[in-house]
C-alpha cells in the first residue's frame, strides 16, 4: 500500500488517472442507486428533451434518461472490460508459459502462431471474429480477448524463459517433480508482476475495442445500455440532440483515459532509467 502511495505521489499523471478512475467507479457503482429513472423504461412523451434540471443529460429517442443509461452502461462496459482481460489473461498466460517452459521447436512453433495473430490490426481481427461467431455480447468479448491474448502470451513467455533457468527450477526438475507442478508452483507465480501491469495497460484497449464492436452492431444488443452501442443507436439524432450520442461517447473516453494515464505512469515507474533520474 505504501508503495502505491509513493508511486502516486511521484507520478502526477498517474495520480490524476487514479482520481479520474475513482470518480468513474463511484459514479457507476452509486449512480444507478441514486437515479430516480430506469435505464430501459420508455417514455415517448419526453423523447429527445434537452438537458434540464429533471434530466441532467437530457433524454434519448425513447424518452429514456441519458444519464441513467450512461451510469448503468458503465457497469456493463467496465464489466465487459474486466471479463475480456480475465479471458485474455488466462488464455495468453497459459499459452505463453507453456511455450517458454517447453523451449526448442515447440516454443518456435507456438510463438509463430502468436506472431500471426499479431499480424492483424487488432480491431480488424476482432471485427472479423465477432462477425463469424455471430453478433452477441459474449462473442464480442471472446473476439476482443483473442486479439489481446498474444500480448499476454509474449510477456508470459519471456518470464517463463528467464525463470526456467533459475536454480530452484533446476532443483525441482532434479527432484523429479512433474512439469505441470513446476509450471504452476514455481514459474507462474514468480513471473506474475509484469503480467499484472500488462493487464492495466490492456484494460483501456479492451474497453475501447468492445465499445467499437458495439458501435458496429457486433457487440451488446438493444436494449442493453452499453456505451458503444448507445452511441451508434443515437447517431441519427445527434444533429438535433447531440447529447444523446456525446454522453456515452465521452464516458468511454474518460474511462479509457484514466486507465491509460495509470498505465503510462506504471510504464514510467518500471523503467529503471527514469526511476534513477527521479530518484
Amino acid at each position: 500500500m505504501s508503495e502505491v502511495l509513493s508511486f502516486l505521489r511521484n507520478n502526477r499523471l498517474a495520480a490524476y488517472g487514479a482520481g479520474l478512475l475513482l470518480f468513474v467507479l463511484m459514479a457507476v457503482i452509486f449512480g444507478p442507486i441514486l437515479s430516480p429513472y430506469q435505464p430501459t423504461k420508455l417514455n415517448i412523451m419526453e423523447a429527445l428533451s434537452a438537458p434540464s434540471a429533471t434530466h441532467w443529460l437530457g433524454t434519448d429517442s425513447f424518452g429514456r434518461d441519458v444519464l441513467t443509461r450512461v451510469l448503468h452502461g458503465g457497469r456493463i462496459t467496465l464489466g465487459i472490460g474486466i471479463g475480456v482481460i480475465v479471458i485474455a489473461f488466462s488464455v495468453g498466460v497459459t499459452y505463453g508459459t507453456i511455450s517458454g517452459f517447453a523451449g526448442g521447436w515447440i516454443d518456435v512453433a507456438m510463438m509463430r502462431v502468436v506472431d500471426a495473430v499479431l499480424s492483424f490490426p487488432a480491431l480488424v481481427l476482432a471485427i472479423a471474429l465477432a462477425a463469424a461467431f455471430g453478433a452477441s455480447l459474449e462473442n464480442a468479448m471472446l473476439a476482443v480477448a483473442i486479439t489481446l491474448a498474444p500480448q499476454f502470451a509474449r510477456v508470459a513467455r519471456a518470464q517463463a524463459v528467464s525463470i526456467s533457468v533459475r536454480p530452484y527450477v533446476d532443483a525441482a526438475l532434479s527432484l523429479g517433480l512433474p512439469n505441470r507442478r513446476i509450471l504452476w508452483r514455481y514459474i507462474l507465480p514468480n513471473g506474475l508482476a509484469p503480467l499484472l501491469v500488462q493487464s492495466t495497460l490492456a484494460l483501456g484497449s479492451a474497453i475501447l475495442q468492445t465499445a467499437s464492436l458495439g458501435f458496429l452492431g457486433l457487440g451488446a444488443q438493444p436494449p442493453i445500455a452499453e456505451w458503444g452501442a448507445d452511441v451508434a443507436a443515437n447517431l441519427q439524432y445527434a444533429r438535433g440532440s447531440p447529447w444523446v450520442a456525446l454522453a456515452p461517447g465521452t464516458a468511454i473516453l474518460l474511462t479509457v483515459l484514466s486507465f491509460n494515464m495509470i498505465g503510462d505512469g506504471l510504464a514510467d515507474w518500471m523503467n529503471p532509467r527514469r526511476r534513477k533520474r527521479q530518484g
Partner: peptide, 21 residues
Amino acid sequence: RILSLVGVSVPAFLFALVLQL
C-alpha cells in the same frame, strides 16, 4: 502529455462525430 493520452484514448467514432457536428 495529457492531450496525447486523449488522442490514444478517444474512440474514433466519438471524435468523428464531434468533428462532423
